[in-house]
């Protein structure tokens, strides 16, 4: 009888563990937020913008420190070479090499496209962490399309300054590498998707080397970011992210 009771308890424990996941969604979301971040990093990437009328690719190099400091410089094409964007905290400046002028992006320009892509200057500035602005929970865990994934549904907090109504973050179950982020508007209509592909070891870290943004209301259009090179945990001084450096 005791043996039977023991087996029952064991079965109950094992079945409950199947429903109550031991995964920590907060840890997963932070891991997604920090996928391309470290104390300081350097990288080279291609930015490919496809619209219904034109397509273009830029090669960029970027430096970052923490989540507040970014410097991005155009390497190719030649016409736009040395066009540089500096972001420090909530401020963005552009350096125009042809006129040798630094222009601070005002709030009225935050909605404008960054480098003609589907990202805006505001996307660049956004440093919100999912865990800060959203309430979240794991809504799916298991195999989907042959991949072992975890799906976290995030709903914005009441007063959080985010435009989305819901964000679904889908990561690989094993290493929390992002697979897809799906953005819904306030009416929970699909708005855009951000796909992460080509997972490779780069800078001693497994990362998706390609990110593709697909806006739903602009069929046939997309912006893809492909990392060519990335180095993490470098030592870069704060002075590097200055207006003086921007003009060099």
């Amino acid at each position: 009888m005791k043996k039977l009771l023991g087996i029952l308890v064991l079965v109950l424990l094992s079945s409950s563990s199947a429903f109550a996941s031991n995964l920590n969604p907060e840890k997963i979301l932070n891991s997604v937020d920090d996928i391309y971040r470290s104390n300081a990093s350097y990288g080279v990437l291609n930015l490919s913008v496809t619209t219904t009328n034109w397509q273009r690719t830029l090669t960029l190099e970027q430096w970052s420190k923490g989540k507040d400091k970014h410097l991005i410089r155009v390497l190719k094409p030649k016409k736009e070479k040395d066009l540089t964007t500096l972001r420090v905290d909530n401020n963005v400046w552009n350096y125009m090499p042809k006129v040798k002028r630094v222009v601070k992006i005002p709030s009225s320009m935050m909605a404008s496209s960054w480098m003609g892509s589907h990202f805006t200057n505001d996307d660049l500035v956004k440093q919100s962490r999912m865990v800060k602005d959203y309430t979240f929970s794991i809504t799916y865990e298991g195999k989907r399309e042959g991949k072992n994934i975890v799906e976290i549904s995030c709903f914005p907090k009441k007063d959080a300054a985010v435009v989305w109504g819901k964000v679904e973050v889908i990561v690989y179950r094993d290493d929390f590498i992002p697979l897809r982020i799906i953005y819904y508007d306030e009416d929970l209509q699909l708005s855009r998707t951000l796909d992460f592909t080509n997972i490779q070891m780069m800078g001693d870290k497994m990362i998706p080397t390609q990110m593709t943004m697909i806006p739903v209301d602009e069929p046939g259009e997309s912006t893809a970011i492909q990392w060519k090179k990335i180095q993490f945990d470098l030592t870069i001084s704060d002075d590097f992210f200055s207006l003086r450096k921007l003009q060099q």
Binding site: S107, S108, D122, Y183, Y184, D185, S191, D217
Partner: peptide
């Protein structure tokens, strides 16, 4: 205050 209004659909000054 001059600024920009954003929604998931668009942004307007």
């Amino acid at each position: 205050l001059q600024g920009v209004a954003h929604t998931a659909k668009s942004s307007v000054g």
